[in-house]
């Protein structure tokens, strides 16, 4: 195959992925009552969590670890923003793989894995947008100090990248459907690791030193922590380090998804059914 041809094919593949992304976005917007429910939930959980962290900040007990200046409410807002935007990609994989619906996709000329990831990412981006507007409203209503502007700018990059890391992590759980009837247990474990090592409720820097080290290097921190850290104490260096970790994990996870997909597909083609 000549390189021009190959380039044309790559372009058309990307175009198809882009249209899948747009479809995921539109589909999620069309289900606006569900989206509105999610925004409401975001408001509620932020009310509770800011009450918690404000209370902790207000009364520093003797012997307790110190909170970073300015508290962690904005950090938690950012991590919740990403967490609540993450769509249930694993269910889509499970449905397709387990129902035999995959065969129809395999008859289509575009790669299923990329299309499905794009669809999920599109849905997640729609939620990021709706929840982002909600977050700004909540922040305005709360009367809290705004984070530095560059922090918000960094967040606009790291947030979507973090979302992509999450989509890929859930895709790994979903691809397990080639071998397991239900993907739920895999998803639950990944989700809990996101909460714990990703630092959903508090920055991982507040953890005991050894745990903090493990957490920072994990894909779960790439999903949540690095984006959240930028609204607490923004710095170009921190932004670049965070983005570096995220991109590295996106490449690694992408390779892992592709590997798992190829293994699963080989199994399907060999055995005929799942």
């Amino acid at each position: 195959m000549t390189s021009t041809l190959r380039r044309a094919e790559a372009r058309s593949t990307l175009r198809a992925a882009a249209s899948a992304l747009r479809m995921g976005f539109d589909q999620t917007l069309a289900g606006w009552p569900v989206l509105a429910g999610r925004c409401l939930f975001f408001g509620l959980i932020m009310t509770v969590l800011s009450a918690l962290w404000d209370k902790v900040a207000a009364e520093q007990v003797a012997g307790a670890i110190a909170l970073p200046p300015g508290g962690v409410v904005l950090y938690v807002g950012a991590t919740e923003w990403i967490t609540l935007s993450l769509p249930a990609v694993y269910l889509r994989f499970e449905d397709d793989i387990r129902s035999g619906g995959l065969e129809i996709h395999l008859l289509r000329p575009k790669p299923y894995l990329l299309q499905t990831l794009a669809l999920g990412l599109g849905g997640g981006l729609a939620r990021l947008a709706a929840l982002g507007v909600t977050a700004i409203l909540l922040l305005a209503l709360s009367g809290r100090a705004w984070p530095p502007l560059e922090g918000l700018a960094f967040l606009l990059v790291l947030g979507p990248l973090g979302l992509l890391v999450g989509v890929m992590l859930y895709a790994l759980a979903g691809l397990a459907a080639f071998w397991a009837r239900r993907t739920l247990p895999f998803q639950l474990i990944i989700q809990k690791l996101m909460f714990l090592l990703g630092g959903l409720f508090a920055p991982v820097t507040l953890y005991p030193a050894a745990l903090a080290e493990v957490a920072r290097a994990s894909p779960f921190a790439a999903h949540l922590y690095w984006a959240g850290a930028q609204v607490m104490a923004p710095s170009l260096m921190g932004f670049l380090v965070g983005a570096g970790w995220q991109l590295a994990w996106i490449l690694l996870l992408g390779a892992a998804c592709l590997g798992l997909w190829r293994l699963g597909l080989a199994k399907l083609l060999r055995e005929g059914t799942i």
Partner: peptide, 16 residues
Amino acid sequence: FMLVLWGLFFAGFKSV
């Protein structure tokens, strides 16, 4: 898992 998170929380902040 939630209990581990709360365990970490109270290990650090003692009381709220």
